[in-house]
Design a protein around this nucleic acid. Structure first.
Lengths: 152, 152
DNA sequence: TTCGTAAAGGAGAATCATTCTCCAACTATG
DNA sequence: CATAGTTGGAGAATGATTCTCCTTTACGAA
């Protein structure tokens, strides 16, 4: 009689199917990397994933971890937590406002607080957290990139 | 008769006062760097600020730009657009959810969509943008860091 | 104003994250 | 199990950021 799959296992199963559907070879390393990310309760960096995965397969290379992370991001199997992590980006506008981030050209446009209704938490936030502020990050395409993709 | 200050000039004036109040020496380079950021309509990277500032003072060093950005961030004169830009951070959870980011230890915790009321835009977003999704980034302190700061 | 001192700047090396190159090993298939 | 096309491994290369070390500057006191 079949055992109920744990959430991690069912995600790994789905992962295998999606690899097959996308024509991605199902290698030992890929499954380890994906499994490490799914199993993590945090939002691990490539370096952390590498450390984890290396415990199972010490010969794995950091470059392999990076390559597969990008492969998985393109296939939509993973998501990047920060839409603009590559380089420090600064602003002097200290008023509450939000951001529109173009996923293609990485432009960031301000959206004033007044353009949005206030956000309400429907439950008390977890005990022990001290929330100082929030920002809404909208992801999408800016006008120039919307056009560029139409033309292509 | 006094001229009305432009927004940029009034921010630079406030900047000078806040430097004095914080005991920061008011150098030529600092004012140039701050002015470059305030004048930018985008959210510039250190490299872009350097390029801009170098047009006025070709001898300025990139290290000076970085050092002062950090000084300004600590003094609360600037804000970092991304709360976690240093390294790629990943997640396999593709469902809509939000993040609590600890500004001290950089931990990122998930907050389910159901813990928040839906967000409504009170006006039509700027024409030409194509919004795909949004994420609310809450910034604050996690329980461990809240305790750590109490003790210190 | 001039000076002394602490703070800040400049140049380039060092470090850290990420990507690339190139060749060997492996997966999927027949 | 042979083969073609992917993928993996190792280390060099690149890009962003920080550090080191020495020189210059800002600014309060004389």
């Amino acid at each position: 009689m079949p055992t109920v799959e744990t959430p991690v296992e069912s995600m790994v199963t789905a992962f295998r199917e999606r690899c097959r559907a996308s024509g991605l070879a199902l290698t030992h390393q890929r499954e380890l990397i994906y499994r490490a990310i799914v199993s993590s309760k945090h939002h691990p960096s490539p370096e952390l994933i590498f450390d984890e995965v290396r415990r199972q397969t010490p010969s794995i290379s950091l470059a392999t971890v990076y390559k597969n992370i990008h492969t998985f991001l393109e296939a939509g199997l993973l998501r990047e937590v920060s839409p603009h992590h590559g380089s420090l980006r600064l602003e002097a506008n200290l008023a509450e406002h939000h951001h529109l981030v173009c996923t293609r050209c990485k432009a960031i446009v301000d959206l004033d607080e007044s353009e949005l209704e206030p956000i309400h938490l429907s439950r008390k936030l977890r005990a022990g957290y001290r929330i100082l502020r929030y920002t809404v990050e909208f992801q999408g395409l800016c006008p120039a990139c919307t056009d560029a993709l139409k033309t292509t």
